[in-house]
Design a protein around this nucleic acid. Sequence first.
DNA 1: ACCTGAACACCGTTCAAGT
DNA 2: ACCTGAACACCGTTCAAGT
Lengths: 204, 204
Amino acid sequence: MEGAAALVDEIGTDAFHMRLLAERLNTSTATLYRHVTGKDELMAYVVDHVLGEIQPLVGDRTGAAAGRGWRAAATRRALQLREVLDKHPNVLPLLAAQLPIGPNALAIREETIAALVRHGFPHRLAARAHTTLAQYVIGHAIVQPGSPRDDEATALRDYYQGLDAEAYPHTVGAAAYLSEASAEDEFMGGLELILDGIEQARRR
Amino acid sequence: MEGAAALVDEIGTDAFHMRLLAERLNTSTATLYRHVTGKDELMAYVVDHVLGEIQPLVGDRTGAAAGRGWRAAATRRALQLREVLDKHPNVLPLLAAQLPIGPNALAIREETIAALVRHGFPHRLAARAHTTLAQYVIGHAIVQPGSPRDDEATALRDYYQGLDAEAYPHTVGAAAYLSEASAEDEFMGGLELILDGIEQARRR
DNA sequence: ACCTGAACACCGTTCAAGT
DNA sequence: ACCTGAACACCGTTCAAGT
């Protein structure tokens, strides 16, 4: 039932419940349980359904021979995931709670690792890089939720800046940069940071 | 109420409920609501209580002058957080769902940023490094849960290895290394990777 | 003032009864 | 075979009534 994904998008995981979904689909809760084993399975499906929006890396002709194209591929993957999370912020809690292992999640993982291996990565580093990048994007989405006009991000900054500057001088000092830098800059900066680390590991 | 933290440790966030806590404390649920506003506040307290176990970086005399001691301090912080999560695996879902902003979380953040600034980091990079490292440790704990003898980690590897090797050749191929490398090696490898990235950013 | 047993509202899941 | 209204079990929260 992809009606579940739409409902989660609309009202979030907390407000979501089976009666509401049944009502939305013009059926009863008991009928839902004939299609899925329970709410957990439904949420796992929602996660995988959202991940299914990520497009394959088909256009990846950015110099596999040059040995640096992996960076473009990894960046593309990270941006794709970020875009999906930005489009479906309400699935974030589901993604953070556990590792997605649905068919779409597996296909993405497989394709990303394959791309890195094609660029000369050993399997082990390729798998690690994929996991680390995914964790970064998800983690970043949690810390800096929503779009630039989102209230939560500014609320967090205000919270940090409202702290006692004597008790937390550096936290307050760093908070000023949170307002200065756009969320996009912050994200790309951290991403480059991780890619640099992968680059070094690859050379060994 | 730190009885809540003990109860979450024992039975996990899903099994935890107010009646159980009330029973444990030989009181009624209504009385609980005289001390906290609700379950959410209680869970936020549990998170901060657990973070309170992290020791200050007092022994950080690893060459602030050399300009490379930041790496030891950052590694220590990451290992401290990892140790706490390993000791309290049941609080993981709470930590992943939202950014902790309790007093202990703030104190740790402040101290870490301060240490990096002392080692020459600009505020902005110091804050970003702290956040990235914390995200990595939490993300890694979700992917590789529990201790080496934990069932979940091996179950995940078995799941990956049991996949159709033709449909997911690289995922299955990489899974073999999951069994080979200990969880500790995997963690340290990814951590070094991120620290290398921070190192490069610092030089600019 | 402080506490509590009992209730209220709600939600995941199941079942006896319909068609 | 497939569906459903109603119930069951449970949990967060509140309240009228005790002391």
